[in-house]
Every structure is written in structure tokens, then in C-alpha cells.
Amino acid sequence: CHSECLGNCSQPDDPTKCVACRNFYLDGRCVETCPPPYYHFQDWRCVNFSFCQDLHHKCKNSRRQGCHQYVIHNNKCIPECPSGYTMNSSNLLCTPCLGPCPKVCHLLEGEKTIDSVTSAQELRGCTVINGSLIINIRGGNNLAAELEANLGLIEEISGYLKIRRSYALVSLSFFRKLRLIRGETLEIGNYSFYALDNQNLRQLWDWSKHNLTITQGKLFFHYNPKLCLSEIHKMEEVSGTKGRQERNDIALKTNGDQASCENELLKFSYIRTSFDKILLRWEPYWPPDFRDLLGFMLFYKEAPYQNVTEFDGQDACGSNSWTVVDIDPPLRSNDPKSQNHPGWLMRGLKPWTQYAIFVKTLVTFSDERRTYGAKSDIIYVQTDATNPSVPLDPISVSNSSSQIILKWKPPSDPNGNITHYLVFWERQAEDSELFELDYCLKGLKLPSRTWSPPFESEDSQKHNQSEYEDSAGECCSCPKTDSQILKELEESSFRKTFEDYLHNVVFVPRKT
């Protein structure tokens, strides 16, 4: 048989008469490798580009789960590009990614509803959504962080984005990388972005840091009482949809009607710091009717980097990364020049730590249904340095008659930039024990000054392991946590139920 035959053949030295091919099969003959313009397919066939392209389009058009959109890589027609490569849609070739590779997620039936953290986790790592997304989240724990972890990498949506009755959302900033909504599939009414009845939605994105392009379709905003109209108009300008909307697409009466839409800028007039305090004062603000001013709200939190936005980490279910302080308005003076500047002394802060701070007014709604208010920009203030805590785990070892090696770990709280350490030492008198000992005694162990690591005695271990207080009263049991108490109650309830079950099964009433 021919060298490319495997198993047997019907005619000697003829690659077209093989029972099976050793390498690849091409047009009725066995070959060692697939010549151009053919590609290896499933490690035994040679196919042309049209064959591989037909497989790709067949799966793409069917949208069946589990099928493969075949691509070409290293002269092979394979189910998908290997790690580190992405497909070129024009020629199906796998090309190296520039940075992290995109991950295209194809949605069944063309859309997916995100109504819980669990459903959001199914899209973790996706960068391109081939379909439409509907966000409908009523509640949950730590929602802002969970949504950002699972949806934060999405850069492109081919269909539309719909935010509907998501009472738990305060902001859409968890879509931190969303840059493009194509609108290839539109919501009824030709809408590519749809926001309806979101009672706590206050911000779409921080438009000073976020760009969003909507290729096709219109915007729809109705019944978002805490979303200011200025935020919607800003989205029109940034996304390129200005002029597409009709009169009733953006409701003037049901958007922002319960919001404090600040239209003035508060400026800080005085800032002073110490290692654990920050004193702030800002310019006074009074609405047209000074009785509408209820006070100020001061927001602050630790910020290692200057990239904080107002609604980071917030949701309507209680999660809030900001510390909020309510401040009463100052006494009002008739003389504008003698107006008191409101302020606040922030206490209990960490030394040498940068804080993000902003302040906003708290006002009631005027009778004319106009909203007044003022808010400052987010500023960054760093507390002063102070003395560091003591170095940890000092170790001293003498390696000769004239040297001592000293080692330690950095302090747990540096409280500033540590530039150097101060080492103090003092000579001590020799131990009298060394002169009084009889060095001729056998088995004498000389006193040693070398360091030995501390260890816990058996008594201390027994005390720590004991669940009861000892007789001397030195140790006591740790208080039980809520989960331990709940577990004990469940076990007790189970024992009672099981005992009742045994009584009912074992003891049967005697027939009379």
C-alpha cells in the first residue's frame, strides 16, 4: 500500500485506493498535508475557505447554543480562536489581540433580562453583547459592586439597553466600559436606550469621564423622579442622539420631579488639616426662599486615587461607600458681607490618608415646582503625618564578641513616609551569675543571650482551647457569634421535631 494509506488498500502504491488515510483526505486521495488554498479540518480532512465560511455563517444565523462559528488559524479551520487571539470578521482569520481579548457573548432569543446578581454573573467577562440587555433589578445585597464585577467589562451592545423598574439602582456607572450601543435591534418605538419607572436612579454616568455613542435609535425617559433633566440632556449631547427624540420621548413632568437638581456650584473657602482632623468651610448658599434650606450634607471617604465619582458603590438597598454628615444651616444675616460661612470639623480620621470630599445642599421643593440647590466639586484632601507606631517583631542576635545583629519589621501604621529608623542602645553591667558559677561542674549549661522565638506554653494553649472559665478566673470563653447562636437554635429545633416524629412513629394507638 501507499505510504499515506492506513489499515489496508485495494490497489498497491495508489493513494486513492486506501481504506483510511494516515494524515489527511483531499478529493478522494490521501495526502501528507493540505496544500494551499485548503485548510486542515478536524485533523483528517482538507477543506477550502468557502466550506469553513459556510459553517461560520450557519452557526451565526441559527443562534443555536453550542454550535461553533468556525475560524481560520495556522492553516486550520477550527471552532474558535485560541487564547490571546480574536477573529477578523472580513476573512475569519485569528489575529493577536492588542491588550485583553474581546469576548463576544451571543444571547438566546436576542435579549437577556438581568433581574438578579445570579443572572448578571452569566455575563461575567463579556466585552461584546450580541443582542439586547434588559435591566430589571428590584433589590439585593452589595448590588453596585456585584454588577460592576460582572457587567463592568461590557464595551458594546449590538441591540438596545433597557432599564425598567430597577428600584435598587442609583447610577449606571457599573457599566464602566460601555462605549457603544449599535441599535441594530430596537425596542418598540425605535428606541435604543429605554429608561422607565426607576424610582431611585439619580445618575446615568459621570459624563466628564465617560463617552457613549448610540449609532441608531432614540432615547426614552419616563417616570424617573430623581433623575434630573440636565442629566438626560447631557446624554443626548454626548451620545449623538440630540435631535432624534420626539416631543413625548422625554417626559418633562415625570423626570426629576422629586430630585434636588443642583444648578449652582458650592466653593470651599477654608481648608485646614491635622493628622486626624480636617476643618472645612464653604461659601454660604440661600435659595430664593431661605426657609427652603434644610441644611447641608457632607460626604467623605478614603480615596487612594483621584478618580472618585459621587455615586460609586451606591445602591438604593443601603450600600453606600460614603460617610454622610448632616449639618444645620448657619444663622442668616441681613448683611451679605457678614454672612457666616458654614463648615464642619471632621474628626477621627487616619493620618497621612487622602480623602475625597464634597458637600451639597438639602432643600425642600418650592411652590413653583422649581428645584434649587448647590453642590461642590469633589475635592481631595490629605491629612498630615504623625509619629508612626512601633516597629514590629524586633530580633537581636550576637554573632561574635563585638557585634549584635538587630532586625525588625516595619510598623503596622507608618502614618507617613518613613525615611529612617533611630536605634538606641545602652551598655549593661555583666551578670554576677557568670562569676559565681563553678565551671568545672559536669552538665553545666552556660547562660545564653542568643534570641529564641517566643512560644506559647501548654497552660496558655489549654486556656485558649477551654470553653469555660478556669477556677483562677484568668480566662473566659469568647462570646458566641450570631451565626453560632442561630445554628444552635436550628439544631435544637431539629432535635425537638425529630423526637416528636419518633414518638408518633414508635407509639401507635392500640386498636379498641
Rank of each mutant, 00 (worst) to 15 (best):
169 L>H: 03
382 Q>V: 05
123 L>S: 01
114 I>E: 00
233 H>F: 07
231 E>K: 14
159 G>W: 01
266 L>D: 00
299 F>Q: 05
276 D>M: 14
371 T>E: 03
125 G>P: 01
264 E>T: 06
116 S>G: 12
209 K>G: 07
303 A>V: 13
231 E>C: 09
251 A>S: 08
378 I>K: 06
322 W>P: 01
237 E>G: 04
197 D>S: 04
198 N>L: 05
226 K>F: 12
315 D>S: 14
320 N>K: 02
328 D>M: 14
392 L>T: 04
199 Q>R: 14
293 L>C: 07
214 I>L: 08
188 I>C: 07
241 T>H: 08
153 L>S: 11
183 G>L: 01
381 V>Q: 11
233 H>L: 02
291 R>K: 11
240 G>L: 15
298 L>Y: 01
369 R>Q: 13
250 I>A: 15
322 W>S: 02
190 N>T: 09
391 P>E: 00
304 P>D: 10
240 G>Q: 13
253 K>H: 08
145 A>N: 13
323 T>M: 13
207 W>T: 10
319 S>K: 10
327 I>G: 02
372 Y>D: 07
299 F>R: 14
286 W>T: 08
307 N>V: 09
310 E>H: 12
292 D>N: 14
374 A>Y: 14
264 E>F: 09
254 T>Y: 08
266 L>C: 03
138 R>D: 04
292 D>S: 08
399 N>C: 02
207 W>I: 05
343 G>F: 03
174 F>G: 02
370 R>Y: 08
192 S>L: 00
126 C>P: 08
303 A>N: 07
245 Q>N: 14
259 A>G: 04
127 T>R: 08
379 I>E: 03
329 P>I: 11
344 W>V: 08
173 S>C: 09
103 K>T: 09
118 T>G: 04
267 K>S: 07
227 L>E: 00
297 M>L: 14
228 C>Q: 07
255 N>G: 06
188 I>G: 13
203 Q>I: 06
199 Q>Y: 07
406 L>P: 01
388 P>H: 01
242 K>Y: 04
311 F>M: 09
217 G>M: 01
339 Q>N: 15
369 R>Y: 13
399 N>P: 14
241 T>K: 13
147 L>H: 03
162 K>M: 07
406 L>M: 02
293 L>K: 04
320 N>R: 14
149 A>E: 12
161 L>E: 00
374 A>S: 12
341 H>K: 07
352 W>Y: 13
394 P>D: 09
351 P>E: 04
184 E>R: 04
326 D>L: 02
187 E>K: 08
282 W>R: 00
398 S>V: 07
204 L>M: 10
172 L>I: 15
268 F>I: 06
202 R>I: 01
332 R>M: 04
371 T>W: 09
298 L>Q: 00
186 L>W: 05
136 N>F: 12
356 A>Y: 00
289 D>P: 09
273 T>G: 07
254 T>P: 09
157 I>R: 00
302 E>V: 02
300 Y>H: 05
166 S>F: 07
252 L>K: 07
287 P>E: 14
244 R>D: 10
114 I>N: 01
184 E>I: 08
239 S>V: 08
297 M>A: 06
397 V>K: 08
237 E>V: 02
360 K>T: 03
224 N>K: 00
363 V>S: 03
353 T>A: 08
384 D>C: 08
377 D>V: 03
160 Y>T: 05
361 T>G: 11
282 W>I: 08
403 Q>V: 03
230 S>L: 05
342 P>N: 12
104 V>N: 00
251 A>T: 13
134 I>K: 02
401 S>L: 07
221 F>S: 07
109 E>F: 02
257 D>M: 02
119 S>F: 04
374 A>L: 14
165 R>E: 02
283 E>I: 09
197 D>N: 15
332 R>N: 14
228 C>R: 15
211 N>G: 09
187 E>I: 09
384 D>V: 15
264 E>V: 04
127 T>M: 15
338 S>T: 13
267 K>M: 07
163 I>Y: 00
307 N>S: 14
288 P>D: 05
227 L>N: 01
177 K>D: 12
409 K>A: 15
242 K>M: 10
115 D>H: 04
161 L>M: 06
211 N>I: 11
155 E>P: 02
235 M>G: 08
113 T>A: 06
372 Y>N: 15
173 S>W: 11
119 S>K: 06
380 Y>I: 03
144 A>G: 05
173 S>K: 12
270 Y>S: 02
121 Q>F: 11
319 S>T: 05
286 W>G: 13
331 L>H: 08
257 D>V: 15
127 T>G: 11
298 L>M: 14
324 V>W: 07
361 T>S: 14
205 W>S: 02
365 F>Q: 03
105 C>N: 00
387 N>D: 03
135 I>V: 03
349 L>G: 01
397 V>Y: 09
180 L>E: 13
269 S>I: 02
320 N>L: 09
368 E>A: 13
402 S>Y: 10
186 L>F: 05
290 F>N: 03
182 R>H: 08
132 S>L: 01
223 Y>S: 07
122 E>K: 11
375 K>A: 06
124 R>P: 02
295 G>S: 05
381 V>R: 12
161 L>R: 00
350 K>Y: 14
200 N>W: 10
352 W>T: 05
390 V>D: 14
221 F>C: 09
191 Y>P: 10
107 L>A: 05
334 N>A: 07
396 S>M: 03
115 D>F: 05
165 R>M: 12
